[in-house]
Design a protein around this nucleic acid. Sequence first.
DNA 1: ATGGCCTGATCTTCAGGA
Length: 259
Amino acid sequence: MRIATWNVNSITARLPRLLAWLESSGTDVLCVQETKCSEEQFPFDELRELGYEAAVNATGRWNGVALISRAGLADIVTGLPAGPEYEGVREPRAISATCGPVRVWSVYVPNGREPEHAHYAYKLLWLEALKAAVASDAAADRPFAVMGDFNIAPADEDVWDRSFFEGMTHVTPAERAALASLQETGLGDVVPRPLKYDHPFTYWDYRQLCFPKNRGMRIDLVYGNAAFSQAVKDSYVDREERKGKGASDHAPVVVDLEV
DNA sequence: ATGGCCTGATCTTCAGGA
C-alpha cells in the first residue's frame, strides 16, 4: 500500500496536478491539507472518476483537510475531539479514518504566526488535543499514523539555515517539546529519504528562488506507531512535484507499506 | 534542470502562509 501526505495549497488550484499525481504515483491513500475550499466545492466527482472516495473537513477559504482513498474509508472522525477554538471557531484541521488495514489522521497544525501571538498559544493547545486524540490508536496493534503539515521542524537540520529562523515559529523549544510529547504515545518519526541533496525537506517558500537554492524545511511529517513503522518498506519526498508551473509550495511525502 | 510568491475573496488589495 502506498500512503502519502501533501499540503496542496488549494485543492481547486492544484486539481490538475493532484489528479495526474494520484495516477502517476499510484497512491492508495492521500492525506491532504490546505484544501482552501468548502465541502460543496470539494472535487468529489473528479476523484471518483479515478476510483477514489474522499472524506473532507473543510469550511471555506482557509485551512481544510481531507482523506482521499481507494483502499476504503471507514469510521470517519471529523476534527479533533475537544480540539481548541481560535477566535471562537473550531477550524477544520484534522480528519481521520480507517483505510483498509491502516488507521490514519490527516492534520494541518496551526502555523503559530509569531511566538508572542495568540495563534502560537493556540498551536500548542492544538497539539495537546492531538496527543489526547491519538493516544489510544497509537498504543494499539493496528498500523496507525498521524500524517500532515505539522508546521514544526523537528530538529535544526530540518531547516536550511538555523540562524535564519532565530526567534521564529516552527523551531522553538516549546513546539519541539510538543512533538516529543506526541511521541510518548508510541509514535515515531518516519523520516523519508530525499530524492536529491542530503536532507528530506518538504517545503520551499515560493519566494526568492528558495526551491532552486534548496532553501527548504522539513515540516510535513509522518508519525507512525510500532505496527506502522515496522510495515514501512520505503519513504521519500517527491520533490519532482514541487517543480514547474502550478506547483504547491509543499512536496508530497510518500510511504510504502507492506501490509 | 528547478528559476526573483501564491491563493481566494472582502476581488485591483488584502490576509495568511512560514
